[in-house]
């Protein structure tokens, strides 16, 4: 089996390379050009001045904060099947199920807590849900709170988040 031999060109043998000062001069030219261009026009620097400028590259697939979707009649689409809680690698979804009286489906969640401090925002719960009930398309990337309890989000709060992309209601449970 013949091998392809690649010869790597060696640098550093000429007198200019050993002197090193011409190399420094070339480097300083590049550096100084950046410095001069940025100083004369500081508005063109590629820095986002948060919070006055918000990021512009939040796409559809961005995994932001979770939200629970609604059915057409306004109730939650979730049937408390526990698939998302099982799939979650951080074990941060806590569901309690109860019966659903109005015949639309069999179960509904009595309480649905997500501990967003533990969440790694991987999206496995969205992939696991058979009802398109939980989505991460709110586009919210910044979470703040004053205590650890503020970061545990309940069912009402999750139902109230608005989606930034995608449809409003669940597509699997109408």
């Amino acid at each position: 089996m013949s091998q392809k031999i690649k010869t790597v060109k060696r640098y550093g043998e000429r007198f200019q390379d050993k002197l090193y000062l011409p190399a420094i001069y070339d480097g300083v030219k590049v550096t100084f050009k950046h410095l001069f261009d940025n100083v004369t026009d500081m508005n063109a620097v590629d820095t986002l001045e948060y919070p006055e400028e918000q990021p512009k590259d939040i796409s559809e697939r961005y995994r932001g904060l979770h939200r629970l979707t609604h059915r057409e009649d306004g109730s939650e689409a979730c049937v408390a099947c526990f698939m998302c809680a099982t799939a979650c690698p951080s074990n941060c979804i806590f569901i309690e199920a109860e019966e659903r009286e109005d015949g639309v489906d069999e179960k509904r969640p009595k309480s649905f807590f997500i501990d967003t401090l533990e969440c790694v925002f991987c999206g496995y719960c969205v992939e696991a849900c058979p009802c398109d009930a939980i989505r991460m398309d709110t586009g919210i990337f910044s979470l703040t709170g004053n205590s650890r309890e503020d970061f545990v989000m309940g069912k009402e709060q999750l139902l109230s988040h608005k989606g930034a992309f995608g449809e409003e209601n669940s597509r699997a449970r109408t």
């Binding site: 950046h34 410095l35 940025n38 100083v39 620097v45 820095t47 001045e49």
Partner: peptide, 10 residues
Amino acid sequence: RIASLIQDRL
């Protein structure tokens, strides 16, 4: 400041 302006940031 100069370090950041050389590196294209503020």
